[in-house]
Design a protein around this nucleic acid. Structure first.
Lengths: 137, 137
DNA sequence: CTAGATTGCTTGCAAAACACAAGCCATACT
DNA sequence: AGTATGGCTTGTGTTTTGCAAGCAATCTAG
C-alpha cells in the first residue's frame, strides 16, 4: 500500500484521492445518476474495467466518501452510497462540467443548461444535493 | 498517439486532459504562484519528474491551455503562460481546494481563508483572475 | 574566447498502474 | 438440482510512471 503524501497542499491532497481518470466518473454516476450497484457503474459509457472499479470503490470507501452495505432486498448485492464527504465533491464536479462543456466543441450539454449552471450555481448545487439526500432516505 | 475519447460527457472530456496526479498541480503553480519556467515547476514541493513535466506541458500546450514562447530576456529559457482556456480552470482548482482543505485534518489552510473562499467565492475568483491577467501584460 | 554553469529537455530502465479476458464464490431463481 | 446473477479476484500483456543520466543550446566568468 502506498500512502505517501506528496505535500500538504489541499489540491495535492485531493488529487491523491481522485486525481485519476475514473474516480470522479464513479462519483458522477452516484451524484447525478443515483447509481448504487457495482453493475450499474460497469455499464457507464466509458467502460471501466472490473478490477479498476473494485479498486476505486474500495479506495473511496476507505477514504470515507462512500459506504458499502449489503442490500437488504437482495443479499448478493451491495449498496454503495455517498457520505457527506462524498457529496461535498459535487461543487468540483459542477465546475468540471462547466469547464468541459465550455471548451469542448462536441459537447452535448445545451447552452441553456450551461447558462443555468453559471447563473444559478448555488441553486443548482442545492437542488442536486437535496435530490441525493432524498434518495438516501 | 492515443486520442480516443471515452464518451461525450463533459467530465470525461475534462478528465481526459487533467485527470491525473500532476496536470492540475502545474496549473495551480501557474495560477497561484505565477510560475512560468520549467525549472520553477520542477521545484514544487511534490517533486514531479522531468519527463512527466515535459509531457504534461506539451499536452497542455496542444490542448490550448498554455502557450510556450522563448524568453526574450534569456534565449535558453521558455516562458509558459496561461491562455483564457487555461485560466478557466481556476474555478475547478478553487473547489478542489475547498474540498481538500475541508476534509484534510492536516491541512495548512486557515479556516479564515476557507471561510473567505466559501462566502466570497466570486470575489476571490475575480481577484485571482485579475492578478493573473495583470502579470501577463 | 574558452571553461564552466544553467536551462530545458530526452533517453533508458525498472516498477507500478491499467486494460482485457477469464474464472470463482455466494446468493437467487425455476 | 441446474442455471443465472452480482460482485468481485486472478492472470496476462501493455502503458504509464518514477528515477537517474545524459545532452544540446545558451549564458557567464575569467
Amino acid at each position: 500500500m502506498k500512502k505517501i503524501r506528496r505535500s500538504l497542499c489541499p489540491i495535492s491532497y485531493s488529487l491523491d484521492l481522485f486525481g485519476d481518470r475514473w474516480t470522479l466518473l464513479i462519483l458522477r454516476d452516484m451524484v447525478f445518476m443515483g447509481k448504487q450497484h457495482y453493475r450499474e457503474f460497469l455499464k457507464s459509457g466509458e467502460g471501466i474495467a472490473t478490477n479498476i472499479l473494485a479498486d476505486r470503490l474500495s479506495r473511496l470507501e476507505s477514504a470515507g466518501l462512500v459506504t458499502k452495505e449489503s442490500d437488504p432486498a437482495d443479499a448478493k448485492r451491495y449498496v454503495y452510497s455517498l457520505t457527506e464527504k462524498g457529496l461535498d465533491v459535487l461543487p468540483v464536479l459542477v465546475e468540471i462540467i462547466v469547464w468541459g462543456a465550455s471548451h469542448d466543441p462536441d459537447t452535448p450539454v445545451t447552452s441553456a443548461f450551461l447558462d443555468r449552471l453559471r447563473s444559478d450555481r448555488a441553486g443548482f448545487l442545492a437542488e442536486v444535493r437535496q435530490k441525493v439526500l432524498a434518495r438516501a432516505k
